[in-house]
Structure formats: structure tokens, C-alpha cells
Write a protein that binds this DNA or RNA. Structure first.
Length: 241
DNA sequence: AGGGCTACCTGTACGC
DNA sequence: TGCGTACAGGTAGCCC
């Protein structure tokens, strides 16, 4: 049992069929099959796919797709991840994907889109965290993006100036591209198909740096940690206004 | 309707 | 060493 029960009919659907394409949308992965079905996956906090040529059982393995000469294994310690089954034609209108925002690295995430969303009466951090506003940004990158933008995370999104929207767009694309280049951010559990860790942790400017000196201003004011919507936010009082 | 809070689950770090 | 508590890359569903 993950967040949802793995559909009992999934074995019947997968067996003797072929994965034709794998798509990522926000934090979701979609396996398309030759029989017009689609497997939708989310990794939650601690989910991970590993690929093995000789399966050895590990604690928290939940689901194995056996290919000709290898296995794709879904492992998830906290069970916040899930695997669901859809008809391929329905996949983008399913409840998880229907209202999801634009991809942050796409051209659709632009100034006019943010202007359109200007009525949102939430903090800018909360805006970025909401997958309906923009897809795929999580707690680490939101802190990093706002530090890079020089914007105070509790500032109201609807009060931002045009200049600040531009900064957010630029920083989002910059931080994500850098993080991707470094293979993501490994704090603890995250890794790439079970072997490589992500080295963006070494590049984090504020996340997980509570009470440490700010790399930018180097003032004797330490990085602050606050809670917004139940999630930790890190920022520099001096550099983010 | 939109936004905030909480539960879901397991592991780990820390204080006593 | 052991126990209790707080917290951790996310989301959905409830409540206001």
C-alpha cells in the first residue's frame, strides 16, 4: 500500500506489453504502453526507481516491472508516492494533471502568465510551491529561487512589481538548469536510479543553512528559518526584501 | 472559491 | 543505551 493501492489489474495490463515512451510532467512520471494504457507515478518524498539486472529484494520495494533482461523497481520508504493506471487518452485530464501549471523551463512560464495569476493572495513562496501555478517546484528550489531573486518569501505575490516577476522567472530557470546539471539535490534519500547522488546540495545558498553566514552579503546576520504552510523556508534578511 | 492546516508513513537526529 | 520528540525533497482533502 502506497498513498493509493497499486491497481490490482496493473499486472494484467503490463504483462507482454511494451513501454513505448516515458514522459515527465511536473513531478509526475508517465509510462505509455503500446496497448493505449498509461502508468502514472509520483515519487512523493522518498520514492525512487532503480534498475537492476539481477533483482535483490530491499526493504520498501513496492512494485517491480520485469523487462526482458532487467527490472525497474519502485522503492519508497515513506509511501507518499503512488502508481496509478489510466487509459492513455485520459492521462492529461486525470485529477492529478488536469489543473497543473506550466513547466517552469518552458516558454509558457513567462511574464504575461504571472500577470494573469496576479490575483493570488498568497505569499510568493506559497505561490511557487502550488503545482497549479507552476509545475515541479518543491521546497528546496523555492527557497533557492527566492534567494536568487532577492525577494522575501513572505511577500504577497499580488504585491510584486513587474521587475520582481522578471527576477523570479530568470532565477527559476537559472536555479533549475544548474540543479539539473549537477544531478539534483541529495539531502538524504534522493538519488538517481539508486546509484548517483545529486551534487546541487553543494550549491545551495540558503536551504538547510539555518544560522549560517549568507554567502552573498557575508554579514553577521545568519540565514533565517521560518515555517510557511507547514514547510520550512530559509532566507537572508539582508539580501531578500 | 480560494487558501491554510493536517494527515498520511518511516527513518533519523537530538535532548534528556 | 534508551526513550520521547521534532522534523524531512509532497499531496490531497477537509475546514473556514
Amino acid at each position: 500500500m502506497l498513498r493509493y493501492e497499486i491497481p490490482p489489474q496493473i499486472c494484467k495490463t503490463l504483462i507482454n506489453n511494451r513501454i513505448t515512451k516515458i514522459i515527465r510532467r511536473g513531478k509526475y512520471l508517465i509510462f505509455l504502453l503500446n496497448n493505449q494504457s498509461a502508468v502514472l507515478c509520483h515519487l512523493g518524498m522518498t520514492g525512487c526507481f532503480r534498475i537492476s539486472r539481477d533483482y535483490v529484494k530491499r526493504k520498501h520495494d513496492h512494485f517491480i516491472m520485469g523487462l526482458k533482461n532487467k527490472q525497474i523497481i519502485f522503492n519508497d520508504i515513506r509511501k507518499f508516492g503512488f502508481i496509478k493506471l489510466y487509459k492513455a487518452s485520459d492521462i492529461f485530464s486525470c485529477s492529478h494533471l488536469r489543473k497543473i501549471g506550466p513547466e517552469p523551463l518552458s516558454e509558457n512560464f513567462n511574464i504575461s502568465y504571472l500577470k494573469e495569476k496576479k490575483l493570488r493572495k498568497v505569499s510568493v513562496k506559497s505561490f511557487l510551491m502550488n503545482q497549479y501555478n507552476v509545475a515541479g517546484l518543491g521546497n528546496i528550489y523555492c527557497s533557492e529561487i527566492l534567494f536568487d531573486s532577492g525577494i522575501f518569501p513572505e511577500k504577497n505575490f499580488s504585491n510584486l512589481r513587474l521587475e520582481e516577476y522578471k527576477k523570479i522567472l530568470k532565477s527559476t530557470k537559472k536555479i533549475l538548469n544548474q540543479a539539473i546539471k549537477k544531478g539534483g539535490t541529495t539531502i538524504k534519500d534522493y538519488n538517481i536510479s539508486d546509484e548517483k547522488v545529486g551534487y546541487f546540495k553543494n550549491k545551495l545558498k540558503v536551504y538547510d543553512r539555518y544560522d549560517m553566514t549568507c554567502f552573498r552579503c557575508k554579514k553577521n546576520i545568519k540565514i533565517k528559518k521560518i515555517f510557511q504552510n507547514g514547510r520550512s523556508t530559509f532566507y537572508c534578511v539582508k539580501c531578500q526584501k
